[in-house]
Design a protein around this nucleic acid. Structure first.
Length: 564
RNA sequence: UGGGGUGUCGUCAAGCGGUAAGACACAGGUCUUUGGAACCUGGAUUCGGAGGUUCGAAUCCUCCCACCCCAGCCA
């Protein structure tokens, strides 16, 4: 099976890097980093950034660091660090020994701040948070200078030391950059560099009570790690002048180039950490790894493969346009990957009892059934066949419409890997009129799947032997939201949650071979979709499967059109 | 009504002054022991709009319009 070859990715960021290579801007060196804040789980949007940063490093012979951007102790935890490490690794990337923490730079960062003060480029401000906001001005009006802006270097040094020593209340003092209160760019109006926060830090404990702000910590962390290209999302474009101002002011040896790209948006879901946390906290989903979540952990549990996610991240491209990618593309990537490598097995989600009237009561046959129609390397297994079977309720219709060509009274179909059967009667529930059992006859001459007389059959349906199949739970997942862009609609986004995003089926029957699997391997349940064993919820003898994605279904499309 | 960005098919996205790639989606068709997969075909006379420069403009210039980001001691 040929691997799908995609053209080598090219985008404006790689163009910039190649330009830098030509002009020897960084002596031809390329170093990137993926810098998540450990205050939540990674999602598919992060995956885009991970693939970009690690991908670029690999492509240009450089390295990509994994850095925890942990500069705000509230909300950051070791659990999140662990999940990030697990997820990036699972995605298939390797940072070798380059796992860094901004919190490991606190001492250096502090010294840099002292240097800035000594050069009169930063000052300690005694204004309250409210006052600072009032002084900041608005989008159209310049700000006012703080009355503390011209404290002497000595006083600033002393005050900053006291901040650090824990002599002040939270919020009493902040360290600010002395830039320009009249700047049209609000970020440059004497931004706060350090704040006092007596909060326990998951790594440094109570060692520090002052913490650097993002703008101060990030550029310097990049510089300390000798990053060449600091790739981030568009909302930081306004912050780039500050990034450069700090590094210029400190005359650091390494001054990385910040480059911004558009963050990923995906239709029918939300991709902001705030919103995802809300879904988890308020119990709309069962956790960060709920298979409906767009988190790496959720998609993994759902059954998405790292290869599919990487392929998706490559195909969506990298640009500066705000965009919403169609979820259908992600699903396509998942199908494309799973089509190639998922073994085919048979499972009946909504069982309908079928009795083969002319098949001997106690007889059992085994049909050798290949795991993959195009790839014999995957091998085959034996599937037991007997007089009583289950087929999919949907595969039988007593009064079929024109284009329905599965089983119905008087019609003949092929059982996958087995005989032709013909419907000769139905048994109905006397109360409801529902068909509860279908009677068929089989043609012993069609064991090969073909009739010696050359007659054809319109459909092939899947089945399991009633006696030999095992019971399973199957969860059918659908899109989390009912609307393509929940954040673009009126009111609270949770209003648009899809009430049918999860359907739990408890009466499914699967072929016996599935009783013993233990890994998170994915299968194709023939004609239904791709399914993945749920390690968390399976119990011995009763597996639970998550539907990764359906197969493309032109019948459903047809049937849906006729309803309209 | 400041500053920073972005506008090319339904959704993404190439294009870098020489006459609109590709992918997904969609619509037809071939094939088929999965109504799957695979394969073939179809689609922007036009690039947010209006002017201008040019033999020639999605690409250059001018003006206009729309959308996104910024007034956390979050990142």
């Amino acid at each position: 099976m040929a691997q799908i070859q995609h053209s080598p990715p090219s985008d404006f960021i790689r163009e910039i890097i190649e330009d830098h290579s030509r002009t020897k801007r960084f002596k031809g060196r390329v170093a990137t980093r993926f810098p998540p804040e450990p205050n939540g789980y990674l999602h598919i949007g992060h995956a885009k950034s991970v693939c970009l940063n690690f991908g670029i490093a690999a492509q240009y012979g450089g390295a990509c660091n994994l850095r925890m951007d942990d500069t705000d102790p509230s909300g950051e935890t070791q659990e999140y660090v662990d999940s990030i490490i697990r997820d990036v690794k699972w995605l298939g990337f390797d940072w070798e020994d380059r796992l860094y923490y901004a919190s490991d730079y606190y001492e250096q960062l502090y010294q840099y701040a002292v240097q800035l003060i000594k050069e009169s480029k930063a000052y300690v401000c005694s204004l309250s948070a409210d006052e600072i906001r009032e002084h900041r001005g608005t989008l159209t009006e310049p700000g006012k200078e703080s009355p503390y802006r011209n404290r002497s270097v000595e006083e600033n040094l002393d005050l900053f030391k006291r901040m650090q020593a824990g002599e002040c209340e939270d919020g009493a003092l902040v360290l600010r950059a002395r830039i320009d209160m009249a700047s049209p760019n609000i970020v440059m109006r004497d931004p706060v560099l350090y704040r006092i926060k007596r909060t326990h830090h998951y790594r440094t404990g109570n060692q520090w009570c002052i913490y650097p702000m993002y703008d101060f910590a990030h550029c310097l962390s990049d510089s300390i790690e000798k990053i060449t290209h600091s790739i981030c999302t568009l909302e930081f474009e306004n912050n780039r002048p500050l990034y450069d101002w700090i590094l210029d002011g400190l005359k650091t040896e390494c001054h990385p180039q910040q480059i911004e790209f558009a963050r990923l948006n995906l239709s029918y879901t939300v991709l902001s950490k705030r919103r995802l946390i809300e879904l988890v906290r308020k119990g709309y989903v069962t956790g960060w790894d709920d298979p409906r979540m767009p988190t790496i952990a959720g998609m993994r549990r759902r059954g998405y493969t790292p290869e599919a996610i990487r392929s998706f991240c490559e195909r969506i491209g990298v640009a500066k346009n705000d965009s919403i990618i169609d979820m259908a593309l992600l699903e396509h990537c998942v199908r494309e990957d799973l089509n190639e490598k998922a073994p085919r097995v048979m499972a009946v989600l909504h069982p309908l009892r079928v009795v083969i009237d002319n098949y001997p009561e106690s007889r059992v046959e085994e049909f050798d059934s290949p795991y993959h129609p195009q790839n014999p390397i995957l091998g085959s297994r034996k599937v037991p066949f007997s007089r009583v079977l289950y087929i999919e309720q949907e595969d039988f219709m007593e009064n079929p419409p024109k284009k329905f060509y599965r089983l119905s009274p008087g019609r003949e179909v092929r059982l996958r890997y087995g005989y032709f059967i013909k419907c000769v009667g139905v048994v109905k529930d006397p109360k409801t009129g529902q068909v509860v059992e279908v009677h068929c006859t089989y043609d012993p001459e069609t064991r090969s799947g073909f009739a010696p007389d050359g007659r054809k059959v319109d459909a092939t349906i899947h089945w399991v032997s009633a006696e030999h199949s095992i019971s399973a739970e199957v969860r059918l997942y659908d899109r989390l939201f009912q609307v393509a862009n929940p954040m673009g609609e009126e009111g609270d986004f949770t209003k648009y949650l899809n009430p049918k995003s999860l359907e739990i089926l408890t009466t499914c029957r699967v072929e016996p071979g599935l009783a013993t699997i233990k890994s998170e391997d994915r299968f194709q349940f023939e004609r239904l979709g791709y399914f993945c064993l749920d390690l968390k919820d399976s119990i011995p003898g009763r597996p639970a499967f998550n539907r990764v994605v359906t197969l493309r279904d032109s019948w459903a499309k047809l049937a849906g059109q006729e309803k309209k």
